[in-house]
Amino acid sequence: MNIFRKDKRKEIKNELPLEVSNNTSTSNKGSVKLRVFRVNAVQNPNDIPHFDEFQVPVKRWTTVLDALLDAKSYQDSSIGIRYSCRMASCGSCGMKINGIPRLACYTKISDLDTNTITCEPLPNFPYIRDLVTDFSQFFNHHRSVMPFMQNKKADIPNTNELTEYKQSPQDLDKFLQFSYCIKCGLCYSACPTVATDVKFPGPQALSQAYRYFADSRDSDKSNRLKIIDTNHGIWRCHFAGSCSNVCPKGVDPALGIQLLRSHLLGISKSEKKIAQLQDRSTNTYREEDGEEQIEKEDLKE
């Protein structure tokens, strides 16, 4: 009975408004100071960027996006923000929050441990307005790695004969984590090479190149390698690893880049390590599926 009461108290405590330490003159209990980067590069290319400050009420569960929308609704409707899903799925609300690229909808203010939240547009992207940046170059790089399945044997015009592409769970494991990318651009904005080399495809595009390269259903592997094996291609990665640090979906683009490099250097079959990792993390995965494991030969047939 006592244990139950203890838990209940904890729950209630979690629902209370966030207690914020009072170390700035403007901050109140249950509110934070939001510093929002303001610029209008479209209307006035010479516009001088500055920060506007807003005091917004917060609860323990308030995200940075909620706070920004609160400021937009009740204090300044001209704040430029891009968002859609509010659940870390669409990848549109990426911004630099307190110096680190993050998704605004996925960052709780209570996790930031401060009463001043600074929101800036993503670095390495040209400004459009306020927190909205231009993703054209980013998507061009993404397009350049041909992020779609290519299989010359696929009998696409013959729809009667069209059958599904089968794939074993092991083959799926080889690229699954890379297919979780939501194209939010956080890795691109954190990459030090992208900051200096505009022709460098960036971690997102390179990890997608690996995602399609490692897919057993794709047949255009040598061409995929050629696309990224250029002066400004995959070899310009310094392996800073900041892309993997900021990725909100656990894609680990730095791993994809290293795996692709190992293929280019001729140390092949490295992608198997991912399948083994998956094997260990899920532990019973193979045992459970053991009886149902589809033989590769069967799949080919």
Partner: peptide, 10 residues
């Protein structure tokens, strides 16, 4: 190719 240059580099 860049990969060949980098192989030589390593």
């Amino acid at each position: 190719r860049e990969s060949q240059i980098m192989k030589i580099h390593y």
